[in-house]
Simulated scan of single mutants.
Amino acid sequence: MGSYHAGSLAVQELVGVRERAEHVGRSLGQDIKPVAAAFLELQPLLVVGAADPGTRRVWASALTGTPGFVRATGPRQMSVTTDAGPADPLTAALKTPGTHLGTIALDPRTRRRMRLNGRLRPTARGFAVQADQVFSNCPRYIQRRQSYATSADRTPGSPRRLTGLGPVEQEFIRSADTFFLATVHGAGADASHRGGNPGFVKVTSPRELTWPDYPGNAMFRTLGNLRTDPRAGLLLLDWESGDTLQLTGEAHTEFAADGVRSVRFTLLEARSTPAAVPLRWSAPEYSPANPGS
């Protein structure tokens, strides 16, 4: 399949980076190279993004396990030996053959990230993904966290379903230095990372957020997806307590005359889950690439 679809191409043309994007796009492939396979096997966290087959709403979810729970089981196949749990909004999607799935493995220790997108096949112990695209991104905007511990006695609480953000959720968002963003297009799904100093995500109302779109690799995969399909899912994670906040809704990019870009997200539904993730990471060292650092 081609490197970019019409939405990404349109944004690249609008911003004036089409030639650079074509060069960067050569890094996209279907094969999981040995260095990527080795990276996957060290990760305790995988973020996945997809559309729920029933509601068609897009969500991002966190999957965790002992390193090795995510691994390459073929040159173009990744296997995951866990599930999202019965209360997660992507549980049905992860059991549906042919689901378009976007995944991202991000390691705060090394500030490396790897993305793999493809079609899902359920397995006896979880699922496998047949890769359509495999690629890495630069370390910009990733906060370094030197180490993590697994809290074996941490039990996830019951998720609260919300249609608006209360004071607690709003503060959770304002204090975030990282979130994950799931988007879709006609032939696939994607999961990406957004980072910045705390406060880079603004809560403008109980049902609306906005964040800056910092300069990246010129691919505009996420903004390209949103140009053709505004459905989006956000995952915010408390890296110490393991609390998660999952949001689903629609997102639209705003292009200012001076070239500054921002994304405005309108909430349809949220799920707040205490202690959802058993990992407790060390305090962050903010990326020197973050504006304001």
Rank of each mutant, 00 (worst) to 15 (best):
E240V: 11
W239L: 15
E208M: 13
D190K: 04
T253Q: 11
R161F: 08
D243A: 04
D190L: 03
F220T: 11
P198C: 12
T266Y: 02
Q246G: 00
L226H: 04
G188Y: 11
P198R: 12
L245A: 00
P230N: 13
P212D: 06
T244H: 00
A187Y: 13
A187I: 08
H185F: 14
I173C: 01
P167A: 15
A256P: 00
D153T: 15
E254R: 14
V263I: 15
G259V: 05
Q246T: 03
E254N: 11
H193P: 08
L235F: 06
N225H: 09
M219W: 06
P215G: 12
K202L: 06
L209Q: 02
T155L: 14
R160C: 01
A189E: 10
W239Q: 05
E171G: 02
A191G: 02
E169T: 01
V184I: 15
A176K: 01
L165K: 09
G249C: 03
R264T: 15
P156M: 13
P198T: 12
R174K: 08
S192D: 11
A189W: 05
T163M: 12
I173R: 00
G216M: 07
N197E: 12
P167W: 01
L235N: 05
R264I: 14
E254H: 14
T248C: 13
L268H: 14
I173A: 03
T253F: 01
D213Y: 11
L236T: 11
H252V: 14
S192C: 11
V260K: 07
A218L: 03
V184W: 10
T204W: 02
D153E: 10
V201I: 15
E269D: 03
H252C: 03
A152Q: 15
H193K: 07
T178N: 04
L237C: 03
H252K: 12
T150C: 08
T244V: 06
A251F: 01
N225A: 04
R194I: 13
E254C: 12
T183L: 04
S192P: 08
R261A: 04
T204E: 14
G224W: 01
F172A: 01
G199V: 09
R264K: 12
L223S: 09
Y148T: 02
P159M: 00
S151R: 15
A152V: 15
G188H: 07
F180V: 08
A256D: 13
A191P: 07
E269S: 01
E240I: 05
F172N: 06
F220M: 08
V263G: 07
A191D: 04
R221F: 07
A251G: 00
G195C: 10
T253E: 13
L165V: 10
F200Y: 14
T155V: 15
F200C: 10
T155D: 04
E171C: 04
D258M: 02
R160K: 08
A256Y: 00
S262Y: 04
F255S: 03
N197Q: 14
A251V: 05
L209V: 08
H193V: 05
R271Q: 11
S147A: 15
A152R: 15
D229F: 05
P215R: 11
T183D: 06
P215Q: 07
E269I: 04
F179G: 11
P212I: 00
R160P: 00
T183I: 10
F172Y: 09
S175K: 05
D213G: 02
G164L: 13
A152D: 12
G196S: 01
G242F: 07
L223E: 03
